[in-house]
Computed example of a mutant assay.
Amino acid sequence: MNRSRILLHGAIALVLSLTAGFLVFSWLQGQGKKRQAPVEQAAPAQVQLAVAAKPLARGERLGPGNLSMAPYFEKSVPPGSFTALDALEGRVVMVPLGVNEPVTQDKLFPAGSSGSGLETRLGEGRRALAVRGNRVMGLGGLILPGARVDVLMTVDDPDKQGQKLAKVILENMLVLAVGAQADRPQGGKEEMLGETYTLEATPAEAEKLALAGVQGELHLALRGPLDRETVLTSGASLRGNLASLRETDPPKDAPPDQTKAQPMVEEIRGAKREVAPLGSKDARKTGGKP
């Protein structure tokens, strides 16, 4: 009886052990399959797009020298892109482009626009207006296209007949062209002279500039490339210029300056001699001989 029970219990334990071992073995096999390298997926499809081969400024005409092709994923192709360089031949850039930036339809002027005129370089709502210049006005040729200038006007003072008044009337104006040249000189030359200087202006600024050119004499003051500050001035007049660096008069109630020599009065009475500043209460008029 006891022997039968022992055999039964042993058989049950053996079956349970085999079952547990089979389950563990199956689980380990499943984990091994999960750790296997994933199946390589096909690379996303790519397409060749026309991009800028170098930084392009507003108004530049496109051609083989400033364009190239670059691969882009089909899902990330910008709307209006070009897949052939021939379609961009002669088109004009409306928005500045960086290197390898895709050229799209909305970044270009309409087909047929000329890239040689200043109209392609004007900002939205801006106008181009020329003022008469000379060597002095152009700083000896150092004011070049792309520079920023302030415009000063010298005119007869409307409040003081016969007097002149100088005043800054416009600030931070972009120079579009010097004479007929809208591009900076090449080959290391850093000067350019012209009889006119074309400035970019809003319509209101253009009115002020046109009137100033007729009523007075204009001057251009060159600004630094990072200077965007607006400075309010009162203007300069002849009287104000003559007052520059002038020594101010002392206040009426200020004590006399002891460092300055003062006229003295000497009084001699017998063997007594007295000296006092002229005009003081101790000074007395004397007469006769000592």
Rank of each mutant, 00 (worst) to 15 (best):
R239V: 15
P158Y: 00
T202D: 09
S234L: 12
E200A: 14
V178R: 00
F109G: 01
A128P: 06
K281W: 09
V93D: 01
G270R: 02
P79S: 13
V175M: 02
R269L: 14
T259L: 01
V99T: 15
A84N: 10
A111N: 09
I6H: 05
T202I: 09
E60M: 15
L226S: 13
V103D: 02
R127K: 14
G213C: 01
A45I: 09
A212N: 05
G279K: 00
R223D: 10
K107A: 08
S244I: 10
G125N: 07
E195Y: 07
L18F: 05
L8S: 11
W27E: 13
E40W: 03
A261R: 12
A201F: 00
G115L: 06
L85R: 03
L49W: 05
Q105G: 06
E229W: 05
Q163L: 06
D183C: 01
L23D: 01
E119H: 10
T120A: 10
L97E: 03
A271C: 11
D183F: 01
L209F: 00
T230V: 12
L142N: 14
K208R: 15
V99N: 08
P158I: 04
P251T: 06
T248H: 10
A254T: 00
A276D: 04
R223K: 12
S234P: 06
I268E: 12
L49S: 07
S114N: 11
A70C: 11
M69S: 15
E207A: 15
N100M: 10
E191V: 11
S280D: 13
V168N: 13
Q41Y: 04
A212F: 01
R3V: 13
T83H: 02
L170R: 00
S4K: 13
V99G: 05
P79N: 11
K289T: 10
A182P: 02
K164M: 13
N241A: 14
T259F: 00
E195P: 06
G112K: 03
A221H: 04
G240T: 15
K272Q: 14
M1T: 08
A20C: 10
G133Y: 02
L209R: 00
P55T: 04
P185Y: 02
A261Y: 04
R91T: 09
V149P: 06
L174Y: 02
D106R: 14
A206T: 10
R284W: 04
W27I: 12
E205T: 07
K33E: 15
L142V: 12
P250D: 06
S17W: 07
V103E: 02
L242V: 07
D257C: 00
S244G: 14
R127E: 15
V77N: 03
E190P: 04
G279L: 02
P290Q: 08
T154Y: 00
T286F: 08
A42T: 11
P263M: 03
G125E: 04
V265T: 06
V136T: 14
A42D: 08
G80V: 01
L211A: 12
A87L: 10
V149S: 05
V93S: 01
G98N: 13
P277S: 07
Q48H: 06
G115R: 03
T19V: 13
T104P: 06
E267W: 03
R61P: 11
K75W: 08
S26A: 14
S116V: 14
G123E: 03
I12F: 11
I169G: 07
I6Y: 05
P44W: 02
V95A: 13
L129I: 15
L238V: 10
L49I: 14
E266Y: 07
D150Y: 03
D227R: 09
T104R: 09
S116R: 15
G187L: 03
E191G: 07
